[in-house]
Write a protein that binds this DNA or RNA. Structure first.
Length: 729
RNA sequence: GCUGCUGUAGCUCAGUGGUAGAGCACUUCCUUGGUAAGGAAGAGGUCAUGGGUUCAAGUCCCAUCAGCAGCUCCA
């Protein structure tokens, strides 16, 4: 007998062969019908497995029956739907190789190894086949095999990837679980729904390429994405949210509202801020500048390029070489010498090519006596490097920190001067892979609202605390109040990090301590730290529930060491300061792109590029309209008049579509009374006639308070983390 | 960077190997109006670029460039 504790606290004994499904059936037939899976001792398992398996050798367990009402059950449903999709694909495309088929935040995918291309045109027949499988309602059956049996089964089914995975990825597992549904058998950890009929709504969404085990050099697979739900209604809501996200796309709105442009003639990932977009950015910049002055930051400016040595010292150049724009060489032969060094290091330079390259470098003016004398590869590299260092080499700056470090070093610092807080809207350039570029969200030239704080070790926690407070303050000012912090620490097993063990431990401990004390929600991510230090990233949820990585605070004990930063302590000895890198918005491109989507283009009054438009009813009141605009501008508003000789209806429609917060309709009546009829974009109606003074006072208050009167939200409320479930099998 | 899809007027998009199309926007004229589109006329094109196949290419093929989706990456 097994002792089972149910969520209501009741305890009962069941025979070892009893399944959670049978327990449900004993309670009520309806419950049994609703059961999707079970939660035993906190983990989700099949409802069709006998208790003795689930108890894992013990004689008691806690059991929760998961039904369509439990979010955890949705993942089980979707994973089963992935199996059904795979089954349908195998029926329609014989010879399909199976890779992995996990669930995602809102659905599932399955990777297929298949020569024939699946396109969206194939979706209807795949969906039809899936519907047929679901209608048959066959059960999912679990069975266990030894490694040898599993290998035999998978190779018998010609599933080479599964065979490989059992041999390599699952080498530690003595036995392996499989699930059978009709003729379809798949190596799978489970759990699954009892029968296919539980799936009430599903849809294939897209097909795209993927790599076997996420390895870029691995086999190319076709990934089919889909979603599945307990009800048609849930699915419709989800699909509507996808449509809503499309409607908000900042690339579409940015074009329609003339906020920014990315022009192939200028270059991939290089953003042109059009006047309206630039206005939003300028307002945000002014807002932050003012805030930083109050918090005793000092403004600095630094150039867009710097000597390569600067980034060699910082470590950025060697670490991120492939994602930077190529260095600018002052000497014609610089590029050839640089190429030779790299190829020598990689051992890929043939004697013939070496001679050719050197001859070319010589023609360009490289003096190579020392190189000729070199007898080993190391000596050759040293000779080339020595020459290289005598030449000018510049890099478009990928980070602002080295420049700010040099500013710190420009004078001797006393402990009395610390903390030194250097702030700059620093524009940096990164040669992101073409496939990564995405509107303003991922660009090659970006401006960070950057600052570097240099402080004594004992000041670190207080500075970090204040920085967290600043980030929270600025996010709140734009109405973003739903966020969590992700603490990214190093992966102890990796060697990509610079600096000593003590420094890392100290940095991570400080961040963790302050975060814990702050009361902020935070999660820890191993292996996500920057190469020079741990960081706390702000993950902000927007109006329709999507999460964005915006602000970041990073703690750095390493750059001060690399650049040998110092200050004179009270003991009259030299000490090493600690650096904090921080950017509350992250980059202005990304931040504004995110804001466009968050507000769906309808910015609050204090941020709207055009705040007020004056609409004369007839040409006869054009002069009065101009006068109103003039007075609005004198009061500090961004306003214009629509003086076209068309009907006021048309002017209103255009202003509404341009998402201008307020429209002031003026006709003979208003001109007579020195007043305006205010139309509110949000309410989409006339809210009455005010004197111009009263209207200005109303708008001024709204701007002063940074009121956010409307955030267009999605009706969609079912939200889960966008994390893909770990897919061990 | 990889896999796939896409590229026609300023925008959104039709276009079956045989003379380049629509709606909106734009320009001009008429209209002078009261809270989401008044009317008419006009202008606007190297069909992304470069090759190829063909009597004939926007349409078929190849390459390049750019965009999109996903993968991989993100200081």
């Amino acid at each position: 007998m097994i002792n089972v504790t149910l969520p209501d606290g009741s305890v009962r004994d069941y025979s070892e062969e009893t399944t959670p499904l049978q327990i449900a059936a004993a309670i009520s037939e309806r419950l049994a019908n609703d059961v999707i899976a079970a939660e035993v001792n906190g983990s989700v398992v099949d409802a069709m497995r006998p208790l003795k398996e689930l108890a894992e050798g013990t004689s008691s367990l806690t059991l929760k029956l998961l039904t369509v009402k439990d979010a955890a059950a949705l993942g089980v449903l979707r994973h089963s739907c992935a199996h059904i999709m795979a089954r349908a694909v195998m029926r329609l495309f014989p010879g399909t190789g199976l890779a992995f088929g996990p669930t995602t935040g809102h659905g599932f995918y399955y990777d297929f190894d298949l020569d024939q291309r699946i396109s969206e045109d194939d979706f209807p027949r795949i969906e039809q086949e899936m519907a047929a499988i679901i209608a048959e309602g066959e059960p999912f059956e679990r069975f266990m095999l030894s490694r040898d049996e599993a290998l035999e089964l998978c190779s018998g089914m010609h599933q080479a990837l599964k065979v490989e995975h059992i041999r390599e990825g699952l080498a530690e597992h003595p036995t392996l679980s499989f699930y059978r549904q009709g003729e379809f058998v798949d190596l799978c950890r489970g759990p699954h729904i009892p029968r296919a009929g539980k799936i009430k709504a599903f849809k294939l969404l897209s097909v795209a390429g993927a790599h076997w085990k996420g390895d870029q050099s691995g086999k190319s697979l076709q990934r089919l994405y889909g979603t599945a739900w307990f009800s048609k209604k849930d699915q419709d809501q989800y699909l509507e949210q996808i449509e809503e996200a499309k409607r908000r796309d900042h690339r579409v709105l940015g074009k329609r509202l003339q906020l920014f442009q990315i022009d192939p003639g200028v270059g991939q990932g290089l953003c042109l801020w059009l006047p309206k977009g630039a206005t939003i950015r300028a307002i945000l910049e002014d807002f932050i500048k003012k805030e930083l002055l109050e918090r005793e930051y000092e403004p600095v400016y630094s150039p867009h390029i710097g000597r390569v040595e600067l980034y060699e010292t910082s470590g950025h150049f060697p670490y991120y070489r492939d994602s930077q724009f190529a260095p600018i060489f002052g000497h014609d032969a610089g590029r050839i010498i640089d190429f030779c060094i790299r190829k020598l290091q990689e051992g890929e330079l043939s004697a013939e090519n070496e001679a050719t390259l050197l001859q070319a470098a010589e023609i360009m003016g490289y003096q190579h006596e020392e190189y000729r004398r070199a007898s080993s590869i190391e000596e050759k590299i040293a000779a080339l490097r020595k020459w290289e260092k005598q030449q000018e080499r510049y890099l478009l700056k990928p980070m602002n920190c080295p420049h700010h470090v040099e500013i710190y070093k420009s004078q001797p610092r006393s402990y009395r001067d610390l903390p030194v807080r250097l702030a700059e809207f620093g524009t940096v350039y990164r040669h992101e892979q073409t496939g990564e570029l995405n509107g303003m969200l991922r660009v090659r030239g970006l401006t960070q609202d950057d600052a570097h704080l240099f402080c004594m070790p004992e000041q670190v926690e207080e500075e970090f605390r204040q920085t967290l407070e600043l980030v929270q303050f600025v996010l709140k000012s734009v109405g973003l109040e739903d966020y969590r912090v992700q603490l990214s620490v190093r992966d102890p097993a990796s060697d990509k990090y610079v600096g000593s063990e003590e420094n890392w431990q100290q940095a991570e401990a400080s961040l963790r301590k302050v975060l814990s004390e702050s009361g902020l929600r935070f999660t820890t991510c191993e292996g996500e730290a920057a190469f020079y230090g741990p960081k706390a990233d702000f993950m902000v949820r927007d109006a329709i529930g999507r999460e964005w990585q915006l602000g970041t605070v990073q703690l750095d004990y390493n750059l001060p060491e690399r650049f040998e930063l110092e200050y004179v302590g009270p003991d009259n000895k030299m000490h090493r300061p600690v650096m904090i890198h921080r950017a509350p918005f992250g980059s202005l491109e990304r931040f504004v792109g995110m804001l466009i989507e968050h507000f769906a283009g309808a910015f609050p009054l204090w941020l709207a590029p055009e705040q007020i438009r004056v609409l004369p009813v007839t040409d006869h009141v054009a002069d009065y309209a101009r006068d109103v605009v003039k007075r609005l501008k004198q009061a500090g508003f961004r306003a214009s008049a629509d003086l076209r000789s068309c009907k006021v209806n048309a002017k209103i429609r255009d202003a509404q579509l341009e998402l201008i917060p307020y429209m002031l309709v003026v006709g003979p009546k208003e001109a007579e009374a020195n007043s305006v009829s205010v139309r509110d974009r949000i309410e989409s109606r006339d809210i009455g006639m005010l004197t111009l003074e009263d209207a200005i006072a109303k708008f001024e208050q709204e701007v002063r308070e940074k009121q956010i009167r409307q955030v267009i939200k999605s009706a969609f409320t079912i939200q889960q983390d966008e994390t893909t479930t770990e897919n061990e099998y």
